[in-house]
Amino acid sequence: MTVNAKTLTETIACQGLSVRTTNQAELNPSTAKMGKLWLTFYQTIFSKLPAGSAAYGIYHNYESDANDVFDVTVSCQQDMSVDSDGHLNLKVVTIPEGKYLVFSEQGMMPTAVITAWQEVWSYFNSPECEHTRLYDIDFEHYISQFQVDVYIGIE
């Protein structure tokens, strides 16, 4: 696991499928929504994109913090041609410029993603944490089938 500070100097416009959920709901298979959302995204959108396309998991519209409700949008960049027949209800989300801490993890998915998020929670719950989390927009950038970078917005 590597953690680096990074400043995004350009926005990233994405489009994808969204749900509103909580971390608590995602721990229970009967109330979890994200797994099904990712499956639908891969079957209906990502599988039709050109090879090498990036996927993003965007966490936004936080009601307060990681303990409350938020939206998750699984997406690709907006300039990708998807949903030509209009049957999908795509949401457009723009990842803003700004400062982020990037937690990079390699390995099999979804284990690598889970490990990265465990590191995020551990880092921000530590008394030695040097940064303040914004709870504006955080996102996962899937670099390859074996690497994910989790970007956490900071002050």
Rank of each mutant, 00 (worst) to 15 (best):
3 V>D: 07
3 V>G: 02
8 L>D: 11
9 T>A: 04
9 T>G: 03
15 Q>Y: 13
15 Q>W: 03
16 G>L: 03
18 S>A: 15
19 V>I: 15
20 R>N: 08
20 R>Q: 12
21 T>P: 09
22 T>V: 03
22 T>Y: 05
22 T>R: 04
23 N>F: 14
26 E>P: 12
27 L>R: 09
30 S>F: 12
31 T>I: 12
36 K>S: 14
49 L>M: 11
49 L>G: 03
50 P>L: 02
52 G>H: 06
53 S>E: 05
54 A>Y: 07
56 Y>S: 05
56 Y>G: 00
57 G>E: 02
58 I>Q: 01
58 I>F: 13
60 H>A: 10
60 H>R: 01
62 Y>M: 06
63 E>P: 00
63 E>D: 14
63 E>G: 03
64 S>Q: 15
66 A>N: 09
66 A>Y: 12
69 V>A: 14
71 D>G: 01
71 D>R: 02
71 D>T: 09
73 T>P: 05
76 C>E: 00
79 D>N: 15
79 D>R: 11
79 D>A: 14
79 D>L: 14
80 M>T: 06
80 M>N: 13
85 D>E: 12
85 D>H: 06
92 V>D: 12
93 V>P: 04
94 T>W: 09
95 I>Q: 11
96 P>L: 11
97 E>M: 12
98 G>A: 11
99 K>V: 01
99 K>G: 05
102 V>L: 11
103 F>R: 05
103 F>N: 01
111 T>N: 13
111 T>S: 11
114 I>N: 08
115 T>S: 15
116 A>N: 11
118 Q>I: 05
120 V>N: 07
120 V>T: 11
121 W>G: 07
121 W>K: 06
124 F>P: 01
125 N>P: 02
130 E>D: 09
130 E>H: 07
131 H>T: 10
132 T>E: 14
132 T>N: 13
134 L>A: 13
135 Y>G: 05
137 I>H: 02
137 I>G: 05
139 F>W: 02
139 F>E: 03
140 E>G: 01
142 Y>S: 07
143 I>V: 15
143 I>W: 03
144 S>T: 14
145 Q>R: 02
148 V>K: 04
148 V>N: 09
149 D>Q: 06
155 E>P: 14
